[in-house]
Amino acid sequence: METLEQIRDRIAAQFGAGAVTLVTNPGPAAQHSLLLASHAARDIARFLRDDPGLRLDFCSNATGVDWPDKEIVETTKTTQPDPAGGPAKVVETKTKRLQPGCLEAVYHLYSMALKSPAPVIIRLRTVNRTDDVTLPSLTPVWRSCEFQEREIYDLYGIVFTGHPDLRRILMWDEFKDHPMRKDYVSPDDYEWEPTPHDDVLERAKAHYPAPSASTTQTPEVTK
């Protein structure tokens, strides 16, 4: 079995260096992945499936991940020589930058023909999370993505072009939101607990502005 670097190099040789990037995984599992450019993704997927050395004929898992816009605060330390001739000062400058979010589709590929025990992971990323959320569907390559891509469309809102039947799958058709996104707010209907606490209590208070004396039960202390 080739290493992921070798696979990356072969893809880069065939489809151009911009088509693939290696994403490293710092955790102990060390399952690194390949980030594919979406314009070439379906051809690369076909290549991965049909290449005699790889034969990744089994797409086990396809899933979405939501990466919302993130504000990153970077602290940079610079040494400034003192104009008066004293010791150099260390100046910390904080820069805020907005890392734009994206939606990501992750596919775990295995080879049934070669019985590979470790997955080859490929990822595709949309341009942003709001208006440019299309990715090429890999269902024409692996049938197993059919329902899973529908699920990603339903829960994350990634639109797969070339999917044969892209409809909502888990939620009903009239549903408007994509509930697995991190910024989804669920309907306000579970705060009616008799004894709420924590954040549920805060939400309950919003529904009952001021608890009147009759509903407030103060446990009596009898000695």
Binding site: E174, P187, P196, T218
Partner: peptide, 28 residues
């Protein structure tokens, strides 16, 4: 019926009413 975000209506008011929560004062 299926609505855009939730069921319409979210509960049947003839059968069920949200109970007032028992809010205890912090000092009690």
């Amino acid at each position: 019926e299926y609505g855009g975000r939730d069921l319409v209506p979210p509960h049947n008011p003839k059968v069920w009413k949200p109970a007032a929560p028992i809010v205890r004062d912090a000092k009690a």
